[in-house]
Design a protein around this nucleic acid. Structure first.
Length: 271
DNA sequence: AAAAGCCCCTGGATGC
DNA sequence: TGCATCCAGGGGCTTT
């Protein structure tokens, strides 16, 4: 569900409000993807320094240690001073002096993991293999080109893998490839430098615009303050199989790549 | 080293 | 109405 824009929108919606809060308690619901990795009551009394994002992970910095939080496919956060009684899919509450941060995650692919530091093995295991941040200055065409050069897999799957560039999920991978005019099945290493430059620009453009629109709300995504995204309305290809391409009018097609749906325009996108 | 599959889990939409 | 099947914004782990 949440890709970089949705995770960043979520971060922006509560980071300032929770900063400086003191942790009062933690409540765990059903098990998430991994155990917390520490005694929940052990975090009481710590102070929330701030909230950062790395890829699709949120990093909640405490005065000692940090929480790594992932929304998986169906997770969303809410932050409010007065939180209602926990529902069946509310699996994590961080109760603080400024409000409660709650993770609602029906499918429970999400995770909350404690690490003593970013260098601790628990953190390195999750963050260590991540590629470059697409909206940072580190994401440049040369580096992107070099990263794609040694990958023979289809460009769509290389984007999703997240070890070359992070944050691009199933929606934005299809959208970026459409913008760049590249068929999703093309081997990453086969892309010419000009096409890599075009894809580089498309990725930045699509993520930045989605961010501005509050992300995409397909089923139930909302920010931690309850705002829905509306970027899905602007999708050129995602979930538009059979509908006319917004540029050329030909029917949008779909295919499966690595158990995920890919959408593309057979006329606008080339091998 | 990289690629391809598998799997975690629940719920909504669709079809019979 | 009931039940089976398929699909869903992710990604770590195991196997080729």
């Amino acid at each position: 569900m949440p890709e970089l824009p949705e995770v960043e929108v979520t971060r922006l919606s509560f980071a300032n409000r929770i900063a400086g809060a003191k942790v009062l308690s933690l409540r765990m619901g059903k098990p998430l993807r991994w155990p917390l990795g520490c005694a929940p009551q052990g975090l009481a009394g710590r102070t929330v320094r701030g909230v950062r994002r790395r890829g699709k992970y949120l990093l909640i910095d405490l005065d000692r240690g940090l929480l790594l939080l992932h929304l998986g496919m169906s997770g969303s956060l809410s932050f409010a001073a007065h939180m209602p009684v926990a529902g069946v899919h509310d699996h994590f509450d961080l109760v603080t002096t400024k409000g409660t941060l709650r993770l609602n995650d029906p499918r429970r692919f999400g995770a909350v993991v404690y690490a003593e530091s970013e260098e601790a093995s628990e953190a390195v295991k999750l963050l260590g293999r991540l590629g470059v941040e697409p909206l940072s200055d580190d994401f440049d065409v040369d580096r992107f080109h070099a990263g794609l050069k040694r990958r023979k897999a289809a460009i769509k799957q290389v984007l999703l893998a997240g070890d070359v560039v992070v944050g691009v999920g199933n929606i934005y991978a299809s959208e970026a490839l459409f913008l760049a005019g590249i068929l999703p099945t093309v081997g990453a290493a086969r892309l010419s430098r000009p096409r890599v430059a075009k894809l580089h620009a498309a990725i930045r453009d699509i993520l930045a615009r989605a961010l501005t629109s509050g992300g995409s709300t397909l089923r139930n995504f909302s920010s931690a303050s309850g705002e829905k995204g509306h970027f899905q309305l602007e999708a050129m290809v995602y979930a538009r199989e059979g509908q006319p391409c917004r540029v050329c009018g030909k029917a949008i097609k779909s295919l499966r790549q690595g158990q995920r749906s890919t959408f593309y325009c057979p006329a606008c996108q080339k091998a």
